[in-house]
């Protein structure tokens, strides 16, 4: 009877094969599944991009608000300085102020005065307690 020796005969392989390029394709598919890359290029994910855009937007808004509020504060400081200047310099008399008014300013003032007068008239008519108004 013929003998068969596994370890003495030439090696018998399993005979299993793979499709061409299978292992390269496998690497690509697995990396996609695990969200990895087989190069050193750093890929910024969409999520990270969104976060960076949001942070940038917040910084721009914060800077705009602080610059705007500084402008407002500086304007009100200028107005206060002018008011204080006028108040503290008593040598400026009403004639000096009138001299600074132009025609338009005078017309606006007269309109305001007329409005105030008509308001007063109505209040007098409708009010029962005239004494308070007269004494104020």
């Amino acid at each position: 009877m013929k003998e068969f020796k596994l370890n003495e005969n030439s090696k018998i392989t399993s005979g299993f094969t793979t499709p061409e390029g299978y292992f390269d394709q496998f690497t690509i598919e697995l990396n996609n599944k695990l969200n990895l890359t087989n190069t050193e290029i750093k890929v910024v994910s969409i999520q990270t991009k969104r976060v960076l855009t949001l942070v940038a937007a917040i910084v721009v808004v914060a800077l705009s608000v602080s610059v705007y509020s500084k402008i407002i504060i500086s304007n009100s400081e200028e107005n206060n300085t002018t008011e204080n200047y006028i108040t503290n310099h008593s040598e400026i008399c009403q004639y000096d102020l009138i001299a600074l008014l132009d025609k338009n300013d005078i017309e606006n003032l007269s309109i305001e005065l007329n409005n105030n007068n008509s308001k007063n008239d109505d209040e007098f008519v409708n009010s029962n307690d005239l004494y308070n108004y007269l004494t104020e």
Binding site: I12, T13, S14, G15, F16, T17, T18, P19
Partner: peptide, 11 residues
């Protein structure tokens, strides 16, 4: 995906 011969199948 198998290119074995008769002996390989027998094994």
């Amino acid at each position: 995906n198998f290119d074995g011969n008769e002996i390989q199948i027998k094994l």
